[in-house]
């Protein structure tokens, strides 16, 4: 399986080249085109390897992952499928290794082969109230994961501590611990500062950030839109 990324960083497209017998599982509606030799199966949360109904629902509702996924399998010969997210921005491929999981901000996940398993990581009540989708998907196993970002991607090899705005986080490896905290010591100051909740990340590992914040973009555009009619 090979990933080819084009049109970076503004409107990145991923071309996933599959050898005969290989398969990739992708988020619903991320497929743009595919060669005709690929078999497509749509799986709900009950499918084998997706961890059963409750876990699947948990991922969909909490993790930002789609409820249904499509699996593209090269049955006859080799083939390829092209994938892209809804918003403008870059894509990246991270190789998950045994013993080093990847924690993914829910809406950043695009695709992975069956050798990689996804599960929801509960963030505690603070994550729940932060207003951002602070539910991480934990990717374990051995294989590549395709992620999307809103904006360009900054890779940081962390060794120490960094304070990160939750809306700019894409993913990080499991050697990094995180703590949800207010941006300022006080709640009112945090609200006025516009930063709300931030993550304090510590440890050693890799961290991927996106240069734009989807919810800030939503506020910038959405606050000017006419109110929805009931």
């Amino acid at each position: 399986m090979q990933f080819e990324l084009r049109y970076q960083p503004a409107h990145t497209l991923a071309i996933v080249h599959l050898s005969p017998g290989e398969a990739i599982r992708a988020e619903a509606s991320s497929m743009i085109s595919m060669t005709s030799g690929l078999a497509v199966s749509t799986d709900g949360p009950l499918a084998r390897g997706r961890g059963g109904l409750l876990r699947g629902m948990g991922r969909a509702m909490l993790g930002g992952e789609s409820f249904f996924t499509n699996t593209f399998t090269a049955v006859g010969g080799a083939g390829h499928v092209t994938l892209a997210p809804a918003l403008c921005g870059d894509l990246l491929v991270h190789d998950v290794r045994p013993g080093e999981d990847l924690l993914i901000q829910g809406s950043s996940y695009v695709a992975a082969p069956d050798t990689v398993t996804l599960d929801t990581q509960w963030q505690g009540m603070k994550g729940f109230f932060s207003g951002e989708s602070l539910f991480f998907l934990r990717a374990t196993g051995d294989g590549p994961v395709l992620l999307n970002a809103f904006g360009a991607i900054q890779t940081i090899d962390l060794d120490g501590e960094l304070i990160v705005d939750t809306g700019h986080l894409v993913a990080f490896t499991s050697g990094i611990q995180y703590r949800v905290t207010t941006a300022s010591p006080g709640l009112i100051a945090s609200w006025l500062s516009g930063e709300g909740f931030v993550l304090s990340v510590t440890g050693k590992g890799r961290l991927y950030l996106q240069t734009r914040n989807p919810s800030e973009y939503g506020v910038a555009v959405g606050s000017s839109l006419p109110p929805r009619e009931a």
Binding site: E161, L162, H168, A183, A189, S193
Partner: peptide
């Protein structure tokens, strides 16, 4: 800086609103 614009800061950086 404009409110809400922070992406990251190192631990030694203080923020006052």
């Amino acid at each position: 800086a404009e409110a809400g614009s922070m992406v990251t800061r190192t631990p030694g950086v203080q923020m006052d609103t």
